[in-house]
Design a protein around this nucleic acid. Structure first.
Lengths: 210, 210
DNA sequence: AGCTAAATCGAACTATCGTTTGATTTAATA
DNA sequence: TATTAAATCAAACGATAGTTCGATTTAGCT
């Protein structure tokens, strides 16, 4: 583990605000992610990535140690960004927010993060070979825990039925949401529509009221 | 489109029952599917497939024209088998069966087809590059139509709320189900558990009863 | 036994992959 | 301007992929 610049400069002394600087490293990551999303993992060759940032393949190795490092970083950044956004959203809700509102907010952020213009790299996950997938398991579990806690809170407050096995419900629910981007683009649905559908369906179900 | 034996012999003259014959073609397909599921698409090389059926890579080309043909056939067989099973299950239900029962039956068959010992090849889909995925869109849409009709029937009979946008609900629901096998193996849940959870959640939701 | 077609082998070919490396350019500093 | 470090290039390397094809084996039929 050699020390590395990692493409980011420390904030200037005496400055509190972090300056978000766009580095070559970031551009390469974006390019690779774009190719994976659009054309699949196989199409994401070092030469293809390099071409998208106007470089030759070999030059990428100045910024990354290997292709795996690129892919792994895409995945990690994606999950961490998603986690940060959803966690922040939940944290920012008023104390008295109802379960339904918490859920709505979380789902909205989750879905829009996967397809919005601010999109993260998380759905890249679908395209990855199993070997690389496994490495990110821990972070994914941490993210699932976020939702687990959200649901548990709803049950504790009596706003959600407590006959749910959260160990099954959470991955089931998240699994459904993660698949959304694939057919969203085709159907032309918006993040808001999907979020609304997901929340309404999850909370009330589609059964006719008795 | 050259005429092909396709690895199956026509039933003998005068015979009504179709004899299911295990051909080399089928074994190759099984081997390839097994590798994809266990080790990912990248690991599914012609040499790896050949080794699993005790052959050399070149010999596979006696049975298939290309690797793509193998992968495509795995995908198509999987979807068609799934369609056939679910369609048959729904068709076989008594006329007076309630919507909840129809749904339960369909979900059970769907889920168990994805993970059971009788597993189809459908979850191979996850691992495929987008180019190959797109080719199967038509059949997948046909399958979705099956579920669309099921839901529409529930709404028509008043057993399901009619405020659902089925164009969104169906892919959302199926998307969730298709992701099930991945975490099922990890959590040790059974098909029955998952099917029960999915149906109960979809019908009643998890919101506390008012 | 001899023949024929099906099935498989063995060995190569071409293409492309990730990666390495020494030379070269670019940009900042002294 | 001279020096130096950062960044990129050009070209190749070895590995492995899908594929091809003539030779060889296997199995059924006469």
């Amino acid at each position: 583990m050699r020390a590395r610049n990692n493409g980011r400069r420390p904030a200037a002394a005496g400055t509190v605000t972090t300056v978000k600087q766009r580095t070559m490293r970031d551009e390469i990551l974006d390019a690779a992610a774009e190719i994976i999303v659009r054309e699949g993992y196989d199409a994401c060759t070092m030469r293809a990535v390099a071409a998208l940032v106007d470089m030759k393949a070999g030059s990428l190795y100045y910024h990354f140690r290997s292709k795996d490092e690129i892919v792994e970083e895409i995945l990690n950044q994606g999950i961490e960004t998603l986690y940060a956004r959803v966690a922040e959203t939940i944290r920012g809700l008023p104390q008295e927010a109802r379960f339904a509102d918490r859920l709505s907010a979380a789902v909205s952020v989750h879905v829009s993060s996967l397809v919005g213009k601010d999109q993260t790299y998380m759905h890249v996950y679908e395209h990855l070979p199993p070997i690389i997938k496994r490495r990110s398991r821990k972070m994914r579990e941490k993210y699932a825990q976020l939702w687990h806690d959200l649901f548990a809170g709803g049950i504790a407050s009596g706003e959600a039925a407590n006959d749910q096995d959260l160990q099954l419900l959470v991955p089931y629910f998240l699994g459904g949401l993660n698949r959304v981007p694939e057919w969203m683009r085709a159907s032309g649905a918006s993040s808001e529509q999907v979020a609304k559908l997901a929340v309404a369906t999850l909370l009330d179900g589609i059964g006719a009221r008795r």
